[in-house]
Design a protein around this nucleic acid. Sequence first.
DNA 1: ATGATTTCTTGTCATTTGGCAAGTTGAATT
DNA 2: AATTCAACTTGCCAAATGACAAGAAATCAT
Lengths: 200, 200
Amino acid sequence: MIDQLEMMNKQSFVEFIKMHSPATNDVIEEIVTKFQTHKVEKDSFFLKQGELSDVYLFLESGIMRSYTFDMDGNEITTNFFKPNSVVFEVASFFNRSKSLESIQALTDCYGYSIRYLELNELFHSIPEFREFGRSLLVKGYVALKQRTLSVIHETAEERYIQLLESNEAIFQHASLKSIASYLGITDTSLSRIRSNFYKK
Amino acid sequence: MIDQLEMMNKQSFVEFIKMHSPATNDVIEEIVTKFQTHKVEKDSFFLKQGELSDVYLFLESGIMRSYTFDMDGNEITTNFFKPNSVVFEVASFFNRSKSLESIQALTDCYGYSIRYLELNELFHSIPEFREFGRSLLVKGYVALKQRTLSVIHETAEERYIQLLESNEAIFQHASLKSIASYLGITDTSLSRIRSNFYKK
DNA sequence: ATGATTTCTTGTCATTTGGCAAGTTGAATT
DNA sequence: AATTCAACTTGCCAAATGACAAGAAATCAT
């Protein structure tokens, strides 16, 4: 069986860095050499609750899901990760603390990864690359803010449609229950919203 | 009338930086000299929607509120700011774009501020201070994540009690309506939750 | 103080969502 | 193909919250 890892060339990653950093092509080439190809098999864990989120992964292909548990023990999906994004748990990674979340691959996932210390070394030695780190953090922050507002001021149906339109691929791999908990409703309600939606 | 600005000595700000940066006392002293004392009068705006969030303010005393409008034109409180925190609009400040939010003082506010360019200069020239910037961004991110989860999986009453316990001072200065929109409910509902709460 | 204005409370009823349980579907295992 | 199991749907009723409107309370300007 052919190992897809061998066919990866980091081109998508180079493009991604270009979008978020003023670094020259040469510097970007140097940066990406520090990253390792990384595979996470379907259903296996990229990060488990209680562990340290020490790996910073650029996801080139595949879908992942992060989740935690509320006080009643219910599983809550906190995020879905799609290609061309970065996967790690912010609080654990930067504060060097145990993660409250797990991150699991919903499909076979491929990407490029680096550990905390090496990444920090890059940030330290390459000023233009610091902009990359900050930009992604800000981007995540803004997206989260948007999500918070949408949870507060839109109906579950509106949120469902929005997720569906922006993230079609998620629906092919995530269970209804995990999508429901991401949207902040029960699987029962999501099932109703969905059936009602198709009637229209 | 005595101007409170003259009595400020940045001691609380020095302590705050110590908590978030490994910089030595001497370096911290150097950092704080770059900040100006800053007053925002009750009811006046620290930032108006459409402007650039260019000022990074450490709030020493006073309360502020940020808000925006949803698609139906309803005012939505996005955050409350209390002393010993930093006030600015992340997306606008870092992306150098127009702010979608306004930030208004609910009481007379005093603190220390610096502009984007000077702050970046500090980040560039003082590596230990970069840790401060990142730490606060991460802290805000984590708090926002927590808030998102609480909106999704706690009842309005639970959120109300939590806000009340953690932020007593807000309730002395914010209107019921602005608190309600922060909690994601109508002012009517908050009024009921409140009256029901006191009955218990 | 007076009246005007805003803020807050309360009543009534509609809508959304949840909880539970019974069914249905579909995929995996043998 | 039969069995089993998990995922999803649907019905019924309860709880939470919203919409609207009327009234009470607090605040503000004169």
